[in-house]
Amino acid sequence: MSQTFTVKAEARETVGKGAARHLRRNGMIPAVIYGGKQPPLSIAIPYKETFLRLHAGGFMTNVAEIELAGETIKVLPKDYQLDPVRDFLIHVDFLRVGEGTSVSVEVPVHFEKQDASPGLKRGGTLNIVRHEVEVHCPATAIPEFITVDLTDTDIGDSIHASAVKLPAGVSFAITDRDFTIATIAGTAAGMSEASESDEAGDEGETEA
């Protein structure tokens, strides 16, 4: 389940490059809250706190509470901009969310029970096709990650979306195909050993 963090904001009366530079000189950055059938709301938020949140991980999947003039607004970060040269944060877009708000977000994929995979034990390699997957879910119930169980997977196997158990209320954004999340690929050594094992088995059957 996604976590919630709080950001104290100030109303932003003026917009434009000059106003944005003035904010940054004072340790703030411009941001906008939109959605919820309400007009966009221009705000200023602390640079340092927001920058640290951005690089702590999960920034785009964690609900934030914006405290503004005694009001608390629940939002989800939807986009941000970095300076192309110096790589510092210069703007953030927030989506206003409520109990009935559904969103599409990218969440990371975690792989578990690798020690229970015969293919990996035989020297196979986990080839990750998608490190993240896009899902539809309630804004207040965004999963931190999607889990893929590697039990009984063997060399040559592919793990598709249909094999993944999703939390209640969560669905994959891609619905027109059973897309691949990962495969178990064989190394040259592993393939050679497997071939020798198969040949030995064939010879044993022939002698029998």
Rank of each mutant, 00 (worst) to 15 (best):
G57M: 05
A9R: 01
V129L: 08
R24A: 02
G169T: 06
V170Y: 12
V92F: 12
K165C: 01
D79V: 01
T4H: 15
S2Y: 03
L82D: 14
E13A: 02
A194N: 06
F94P: 00
I33N: 06
V103C: 05
K37L: 14
D157S: 08
L95H: 11
G169D: 04
H55G: 10
S197A: 15
R130Y: 14
D93S: 03
F5D: 11
G36Q: 01
R21N: 04
C137W: 06
N127I: 03
R12C: 07
K17R: 14
F51I: 05
T61I: 13
L120Y: 07
K37T: 13
I184L: 09
P143R: 13
F88K: 11
V103A: 05
H110F: 09
F111P: 03
E144G: 11
L41R: 10
T153I: 05
N26H: 15
T50C: 06
R96Y: 03
V129T: 13
E205H: 08
E207Q: 09
I90R: 00
I43T: 00
T4C: 05
T50M: 12
A141S: 15
R12T: 07
I159Y: 10
K78E: 09
L150R: 09
T61K: 14
D152L: 08
D87Y: 15
R12K: 12
P46F: 14
D93P: 00
E196K: 05
T4S: 13
A161R: 03
Q81A: 14
H22Y: 08
T175N: 04
T50G: 06
F51H: 14
K37V: 12
M28A: 03
S42W: 03
T147Y: 08
L54C: 07
L166S: 00
V109L: 08
E10Q: 10
I159W: 09
P167W: 15
A194L: 13
Q81D: 15
A194C: 02
K48V: 10
K113M: 09
L41Q: 15
V133D: 04
N62D: 11
L89E: 08
E71A: 10
R130G: 00
D149T: 02
